[in-house]
Design a binder for these strands. Structure first.
Length: 887
RNA sequence: GGGCGGGUAGCUCAGAUGGAAGAGCAUCGGCCUUACAAGCCGAGGGUCACAGGUUCAAGUCCUGUUCCGCCUACCA
């Protein structure tokens, strides 16, 4: 038989594009701003970099968001999933600079204006790549609302925030030590520096006293910075250095006289207890320098080359200079020793260049007052972080937050809305370019050339995308957003800052929940990175296995608090699952000829009642799990329900009915159940595997439109989908008996094609009745010739046995029994039982247990004890008989 | 230096609120049973890192030890 409805195997590529276009054209992802009855549900996408290509992190992040959005739509919510991209200052600038480099140009040759033009051009040409990739993943964003952190609206929001914070005194400008990337040629925030342990050296250098009498030995890992030293510091409590504070030191190589100062900061136990002070190139030295009013000598320039202040070392590269300084010191016999030393060095998170702490004039956000509210909001539960473990990390960082350096010396980004009057040096901060200086009325105003840290605009994302600073309907309806889904790697970069900005400007948290998911790693648990070459390309996976298989894999492995180790093998496994669904549907559609809207109230068979009950439980469990962001639980419930309950038991059990062996009435009611279960299962599965479910949905008679527009079965109040404990317990008895028989068949190597004769013995009438009632089902699924039900307990001549609850099953094996094999099987079974029995007996002998454990637990143990004993006795009797027969 | 997470079947991992150790893959045996061999039916395999403790009961809670991984920090 062949079905013209579905092909034999599922071919994802034929259907994915088709359905995505269908959804988009039908505007099925669109959120409504006027809807008054539906509950609003909103998520803002973590905007991927425009330069980005879809990686595993995106794939996981967006799959989870999409599952939530599709699920909430099916639950009847008015869902907004706000999409967009991030201008990614340094990253994007780097990309365009690289492109220019292939033409032999650098950005200075091109000039600022032309360069920015080039970036925009690049963006319009390549910037939608990541968006298209998200679409291949099935992301159901409201694409009509797509935003970009540099578009006009968002730029206005950025200026508004900057100006307001400046006026409130929460943004200031000043000369501080910052992290400088000589390659990117810009300042970096502390967060943007990545520390890495390096094998370096600790250089011990002799600093002679100016009176020619002795010296002080200092230790440093960066000898080139000594050229900028303006003091040597010792701890005031250090007895070795009593009285030195009145003496001067001659700085080697520079022949500059510098003071010896005392500061508690100096650790007496480290090195020689004497510390060279370079206020312009070390954050601590900078602080100490401030305390002691030391001069700041900047010897390393912004290009990483030595400045004129470095004397004869001028124009040398900083690392070359290190060598040269060491050589020069050696020559002067001022190098005491060099010892190998491990220490961590900061690197630029974008280009991995070793960063240089450097003195520079930058803009900062005063974060402490903003952080206070952000801490409060999590403490009082306005925003809930899931899993909770991350709240601790959040507090830790928020409590120790430092001012945020927000200016970057690059060109691509939001230029800082600050102007300096060239006449009187007045600084004007405003939303729009001022015409005249308010102080001197001068006309020569020069805008600050710096741009803002990319994260500054990202911090406004939850409200800037909805039209702020205008009071829009979108804001009114969708702010605060329902949940933010993100990886923990940007908890500080982004989440914390959105919290601060949202609370400050909107007066409310940006999201009610933050769901922090794991990182996707490679098979060995390593972070995927281009340099290690262990990157698995999600698009490749999609090409090979289909989007649905990939999405289901991600969901199944997204257990809270643990990293996802991705490998193709897993995806392959879930592709089998998709195919299984496909084939189950194919089978069902061979028989379903029309819509079966109503399930008859009466005369449902046991399996029909059973599968409806299991469906109900699956639906409840899936919604429960998704409400708690337990994606993997939801996935595994669906997997088990579909495969092991619906396919393995239900479809198999129902075949005789479908093939007309049980009359048309039964067939009709079973078809109605089959229709219902397939229908509802597609809805349950849809958030996880949207494409295949949509494809099948559209082949199912009686459905209209998209599966997206249907209703999650838990809310549908559909007929007869309900819990049925009685059907479940009866079914578990029948399946238990079938499994017992199959077990014997398997263990005794009896061919499946051989029909068996079986008798079921029980003293309990109710059991006999039930088994008799479902005799046909047992015969069918266990492949029997005949089944008899008895109360005698008389053992057949030669048989294998199995005990299920209060029933003993005999598989008649006259002529084909292998006595040795059966004896072996029974012995094994009995010893297994003995072990279990032992444990329960011990428990029941314990008076404390009987007294203190809850009644139901004790009751359960007693029941179990009874049934184990009966089982064991039964098997033992049979064993005795087999032994006698075999002998 | 602080903080966090993890060590459960050969492999990869599940095991909210403590009450009879689970899945997938891999392995072994039997099947082309009229949706699916990307399948079906069975089987084997774990002293839940180690040592203590709390409890009638601990993979699950507490303490310590040990081995991994990550985050964070200004020890030159």
């Amino acid at each position: 038989m062949s079905s013209d409805l579905l092909d034999k195997g599922y071919k994802p590529h034929d259907v994915e594009k088709r359905w995505y276009d269908f959804w988009e054209k039908g505007r099925l992802f669109a959120a409504s701003e006027s809807e008054s009855t539906k509950k609003p549900y909103s998520i803002v996408i973590p905007p991927p970099n425009v330069t980005g290509i879809l990686h595993m992190g995106h794939a996981l992040n967006n799959t989870l968001q999409d599952i939530l959005c599709r699920y909430r739509r099916l639950r009847g919510d008015n869902v907004l999933w706000m999409p967009g991209t991030d201008h990614a200052g340094i990253a994007t600038q780097n990309v365009v600079e690289k492109k220019l480099a292939t033409e032999g140009l650098n950005r200075y040759q091109v000039g600022r204006e032309k360069f920015i033009e080039a970036v925009w051009e690049w963006r319009s040409e390549y910037g939608s790549a990541i968006i298209n990739q998200l679409k291949r993943l099935g992301a159901s964003c409201d694409w009509d609302r797509e935003r970009f952190t540099m578009d006009d609206g968002l730029s206005r929001a950025v200026r508004k925030v900057f100006v307001t914070l400046y006026q409130e005194g929460l943004i200031y400008r000043g000369n501080y030590i910052i992290n400088w990337c000589p390659r990117c040629h810009t300042a970096l925030a502390d967060l943007e520096v990545e520390h890495e342990v390096h094998d370096g050296f600790l250089y011990h250098i002799r600093y002679p006293f100016s009176d020619g009498n002795g010296d002080v030995v200092i230790a440093t890992t960066r000898p080139e910075t000594m050229l900028g030293d303006t003091a040597v510091a010792v701890n005031p409590d250090d007895e070795r250095y009593h009285g030195v504070e009145s003496r001067k030191i001659v700085l080697p190589l520079m022949n500059r006289e510098i003071p010896v100062i005392q500061d508690k900061y100096v650790d007496m136990t480290f090195g020689t207890g004497a510390l060279k002070i370079t206020p312009a190139h070390d954050p601590n030295d900078f602080e100490i320098g401030n305390r002691h009013h030391l001069e700041r000598v900047k010897v390393i320039g912004e290009d990483g080359l030595m400045t004129p202040e470095a004397g004869k070392f001028e124009k040398m590269d900083r690392f070359q200079c290190r060598k040269a300084v060491v050589e020069a010191l050696k020559k002067d016999h001022l190098l005491d020793k060099i010892v190998p030393y491990q220490h961590s060095i900061g690197h630029c998170y974008r280009c991995n260049t070793i960063i240089e702490p450097n003195l520079s004039k930058q803009w900062f956000v005063k974060t402490k007052p903003l952080a206070k509210k952000a801490i409060e909001a999590v403490k009082n539960g306005d925003t809930r972080i899931v899993p909770e473990i991350w709240t601790k990390t959040y507090f830790e960082w928020m409590n120790n937050i430092k001012d945020w350096c927000i200016s970057r010396q690059i060109w691509w980004g939001h230029q800082i809305p600050a102007w300096t009057c060239e006449q009187c040096e007045e600084v004007i901060v405003d939303m729009e370019p001022p015409d005249t200086c308010p102080a001197c009325k001068g006309k020569a105003l020069k805008q600050d050339t710096d741009v803002l840290d990319t994260w500054f605009s990202s911090a406004l994302w939850p409200f800037s995308t909805m039209g702020w600073p205008d009071e829009t309907r979108a804001l009114k309806m969708f702010y605060p957003t329902s949940v933010l889904v993100t990886g923990f790697d940007i908890l500080f970069f982004w989440v914390a800052r959105m919290m601060m900005m949202g609370l400050h400007f909107m007066g409310d948290v940006p999201f009610k929940d933050v769901y922090v998911h794991a990182l996707v790693r490679d098979e060995e648990g390593k972070k995927m990175s281009k340099s290690t070459g262990n990157v698995i390309d999600p698009l490749n996976i999609i090409d090979n296995y289909g989007t649905d298989a990939f999405r289901f894999t991600l969901a199944a492995f997204a257990a809270q608090g643990r990293d996802v180790k991705m490998s193709e093998k897993r995806v392959e496994g879930y592709r089998h699952f998709i195919n299984k669904i496909w084939n189950a549907a194919r089978f069902a559609l061979m028989h379903i000829d029309k819509e079966y809207k109503d399930i008859p109230e009466r005369s449902l068979s046991l399996v029909d009642r059973w599968i409806l009950s299991r469906l109900y439980r699956a639906a409840a469990s899936v919604s429960d799990s998704l409400d708690g962001y337990r994606f993997n639980d939801a996935a595994s419930v669906l997997y088990n329900f579909v495969w092991h309950e619906f396919c393995d038991w239900y479809l198999e059990a129902v075949k005789p009915t479908l093939y007309g062996k049980e009359g048309t009435n039964r067939k009709e009611s079973t078809l109605s159940v089959l229709w219902r279960v397939l229908h509802d299962t597609l809805i349950l599965l849809h958030p996880f595997i949207p494409f295949v479910t949509e494809e099948i949905w559209n082949k199912l008679p009686g459905t209209t439109g998209s599966v997206m527009q249907s209703v999650f079965p838990i809310d549908a109040a559909v007929n007869n989908v309900r819990e049925d404990a009685q059907a479940e317990s009866t079914m578990s008895m029948i399946t238990g008996i079938i499994t017992g028989i199959r077990n014997i068949r398997g263990e005794m190597n009896i061919s499946p094609s051989l029909s068996l004769t079986v008798s079921v013995h029980s003293q309990e009438e109710s059991i006999r009745k039930t088994v008799t009632q479902y005799k046909d089902m047992i015969i069918n699924l266990a492949r029997l010739e005949s089944l008899s039900v008895e109360n005698t307990g008389r053992r057949p001549k030669a048989a294998a046995t199995s005990v299920f609850e209060n029933a003993t099953i005999f598989v008649h094996l006259e002529g084909i029994i292998d006595f040795a094999q059966e004896i072996h099987r029974l012995e094994k079974e009995i010893s297994k039982l003995a072990n279990e029995l032992n444990m329960v007996t011990k428990k029941l002998r314990n008076e404390d247990f009987l007294e203190k454990a809850p009644k139901d637990v004790v009751e359960k143990a007693k029941e179990r004890h009874g049934s184990l004993i009966e089982k064991q006795q039964n098997l033992q009797k049979h064993l005795d008989k087999i032994r006698a027969l075999g002998a």
